[in-house]
Design a protein around this nucleic acid. Structure first.
Lengths: 149, 149
DNA sequence: TATTGTTATACTCTATAACTATA
DNA sequence: TATAGTTATAGAGTATAACAATA
């Protein structure tokens, strides 16, 4: 029980203007969708970014750091330390590209590959919240990609 | 010119799986939409969160900190320091609620009100990126709100 | 006892500058 | 001279615990 017998109920919050803004809606939607995925990945001692890197490296042979960083919006210095950590955890390896010795080709270790396969299906199972039909889910993703692809 | 005459073009990145995930799409869309708004607000020495607070307080008389924090996903300690800063900048004031002296009612100062009105129209003008039709824009917002409202 | 808000602090994330090595 | 990546570090954002005042 909240309040007492003579109290007015809290008026609903008016966020009409904010709700008309694309950026606000994208962020609030992300903040709603992300926590369950975070909790799931935490069981495997993975952060969302790390899972993203696993996916990108698993599905792109010979990918280098520049392309990883561009794709997932992580700057070179921050990607370097992120990959350091994943490498220490035995998830991936870096080797010099013989065709251009400045760049490093990133590849998953067998453990990294195994972890990706395990977590991938779990993450996929969290897709499509109850509040969206299958059609709405697909439509939403299609529209979001028009923004950033 | 990139590469040399006999080099293969970089194969396009395969992010098929990631692009099927709602959370990934929301985040990437946000990361694309946010920077222009950030730059605009920076001219007024405002951060996006601060603008959000301005909007919420301007449109909700008698709002207290608990409801602000719940609505915009900011924890009580972090909201306290955020409001401290905005108060120091002369944008808002906090007064005890006479009906419940635990809570503080937040209200804009005339300067805060003026700043909100100025920035509000500028922010609104950044809405609807060229890649979306008016219908798509409205449809996208409608679907996002099904996720978090 | 529970709730609102504050303080202090730790932790994480992100951004910037300077550097090495290759091209 | 430009590019890929690294190191070090600063700054911003987020999370947690302990507390005071009020209900």
């Amino acid at each position: 029980m909240t309040g007492h017998s003579t109290s007015l109920a809290s008026p609903p919050i008016d966020q009409t203007f904010l709700l008309s803004l694309l950026g606000y809606n994208c962020l609030q939607a992300y903040l709603k969708v992300a926590p369950p995925i975070k909790r799931l990945l935490a069981k495997y001692k993975l952060k969302p970014v790390e899972f993203t890197v696993l996916a990108l490296v698993a599905e792109n042979l010979q990918i280098n750091q520049k392309r990883i960083g561009e794709t997932i919006n992580v700057s070179p210095p921050n990607l370097a330390t992120l990959l350091d950590r994943m490498q220490e955890n035995g998830l991936l390896e870096r080797q010099r590209n013989p065709r251009d010795k400045r760049s490093h080709i990133v590849a998953l270790t067998p453990q990294g590959q195994a972890l990706y396969e395990k977590t991938r299906s779990s993450v996929a199972n969290l897709e499509r919240p109850a509040s969206l039909s299958a059609d709405e889910h697909d439509q939403l993703i299609h529209l979001l990609q028009k923004l950033f692809l």
